[in-house]
């Protein structure tokens, strides 16, 4: 019984982790049809923000929950104004430009902080016990915060004016523009918010993984598969993609080791795209957010 709970906990953590690293990408992709290849670097920047801030004596919770999203959100807005804005509607060019941005950011951070791991931060929560098994309290915290984040995004999209305008722009940008919505500003805010969520995720994961200039590459593959398998609905897509792929990954990791877990995740995603080229939400839950 304890084993079942412990395994289940681990499974939920894998799923939550996947949702956490994908959500920022999903917001930008779902809203703007922009695939942001610098997503991994936004996560990386979030991690560096936390490390630098805690080394400077800032409380780790403030660094993770406030500073990381703030800094990366601002970076996101700057990137949108300087780079992405010129490339709307040119999906391939956006992809290439954000890839250039990703290399640029890796290069910048390497030049500033060096190529090796910066000082790591310890997870601020101790272990919890599940019967005779120990589990990380910080992992439990990450699961909870992922759920809170998903709910917050849902509430924002569903009940605020910004959410309404954003959804309108997403459905029909020209019509929204004709009705007096500044779509350019909506795009800027959306990109900034997506970046902020990525920064938050990166900051939260920093104590688990440490930070490296090239750490983005380890997130980016999983985040992309999740978002693309999920389809264009932001919340339903991310959730469905994470549950399916994270679930498979977790189960196969448990049975055959983490290498096979990752193979299973990839194979599942490729087969899934053969069956549903527009992702899960292209076929099911179409009306969802």
């Amino acid at each position: 019984m304890d084993l079942v709970v412990a395994v289940l906990f681990q499974l939920i953590y894998v799923i939550a982790n996947l949702a956490l690293i994908s959500l920022g990408l999903a917001i930008i992709f779902g809203m703007m049809r922009v695939i942001n290849l610098a997503h991994g670097e936004f996560l990386m920047l979030g991690g560096y923000t936390v490390v630098v801030a805690t080394n400077a004596g800032v409380n780790i919770w403030i660094a993770m929950l406030i500073l990381a999203p703030l800094v990366v959100g601002i970076v996101g807005v700057i990137v949108e104004r300087l780079l992405i804005r010129w490339l709307y509607g040119r999906m391939v060019d956006t992809l290439l430009a954000t890839w250039g941005l990703s290399l640029l950011m890796v290069g910048l951070v390497t030049s500033i902080f060096g190529a090796s791991t910066a000082t790591t931060v310890a997870p601020p929560l101790g272990a919890i016990r599940i019967g005779s098994y120990a589990a990380s309290g910080y992992e439990l915290f990450l699961i909870l915060i992922t759920i809170v984040l998903l709910i917050a995004v849902w509430l924002t999209l569903r009940y605020t004016k910004l959410g309404l305008l954003a959804r309108g722009t997403m459905q029909n940008a020209e019509m929204a523009s004709a009705l007096g919505v500044s779509t350019s500003r909506i795009y800027m805010v959306t990109f900034g918010l997506g970046a902020a969520v990525s920064g938050l995720a990166g900051g939260l994961l920093a104590p688990m993984t440490g930070v490296l200039p090239t750490i983005g590459a380890t997130y980016i593959a999983k985040a992309f598969i999740t978002v693309i398998s999920g389809g264009s609905a932001i919340l339903a897509g991310t959730t469905a993609g994470s549950v399916l792929l994270g679930g498979l990954n977790g189960i196969f990791s448990f049975i055959a080791g983490s290498t096979f877990g990752e193979i299973a995740l990839l194979l599942a995603a490729i087969v899934l795209l053969r069956l549903m080229p527009r992702g899960i939400t292209g076929r099911f839950f179409r009306k969802s957010l």
């Binding site: 780079l83 290439l96 430009a97 890839w99 250039g100 941005l101 990703s102 290399l103 640029l104 950011m105 890796v106 290069g107 910048l108 390497t110 030049s111």
Partner: peptide
Amino acid sequence: NNNLVLGIILI
């Protein structure tokens, strides 16, 4: 840094 230069070239 190599990455930096390549990123700039690509953009």
